[in-house]
Write a protein that binds this DNA or RNA. Structure first.
Length: 152
DNA sequence: GCCAACGTTGGC
DNA sequence: GCCAACGTTGGC
């Protein structure tokens, strides 16, 4: 399958991903059940990821990545000093899990505005009104259309 | 900074 | 289980 994953560049940008050890980051901090369930139940190693910059001056797809580790417990939920701390979770019954994501390649920025004006992408969940979900599935056709826009 | 959209919380 | 209040997301 294919996915779109949002990241605020001030938290983790495509360049941060590129300079991370093994160009891989743990996708910690997701605190939404739908997004968690996608990672826990549906993501497989090798799945393609559109790395999307959100909450910034130029929102859009900034690169391609892939899932390299299946879901496992998010350590930040147990850390009282973390902004992602969840007092209702416990190591015995972890509530939040996440995958690891590895860079495939940085791309040109495919701006949200360009995505909106591309008919082949009109079905993307990202573009639906009121969408806030930080992880959304991308269909095979949408994936191909994005790759075509991004070029080699 | 605004605000629409949506998820979560908690009283009842 | 309902639903109002509140908090968050995220583009603009």
């Amino acid at each position: 399958m294919h996915w779109l994953m949002k990241s605020e560049p001030t938290e983790c940008s495509i360049d941060d991903l590129a300079s991370a050890p093994a160009q891989t980051v743990p996708w910690v901090g997701v605190r939404n059940y739908q997004a968690r369930n996608f990672m826990r139940d549906e993501m497989r190693v090798g799945d393609g990821v559109l790395f999307y910059h959100s909450s910034c001056a130029e929102p859009g797809v900034a690169g391609l990545a892939e899932v390299v580790r299946p879901a496992y417990p998010d350590a930040t939920q147990f850390d009282p000093h973390s902004p992602y701390f969840d007092p209702k979770s416990s190591p015995a019954a972890p509530r939040w899990v996440h995958v690891d994501v590895k860079l495939v390649r940085k791309t040109r920025l495919l701006a949200l505005s360009e995505m909106r004006s591309t008919p082949a992408l009109a079905s993307m969940q990202l573009l639906k009104r009121g969408n806030r979900l930080s992880i959304t599935p991308v269909s095979a056709a949408e994936w191909r259309a994005v790759l075509a826009l991004l070029g080699p």
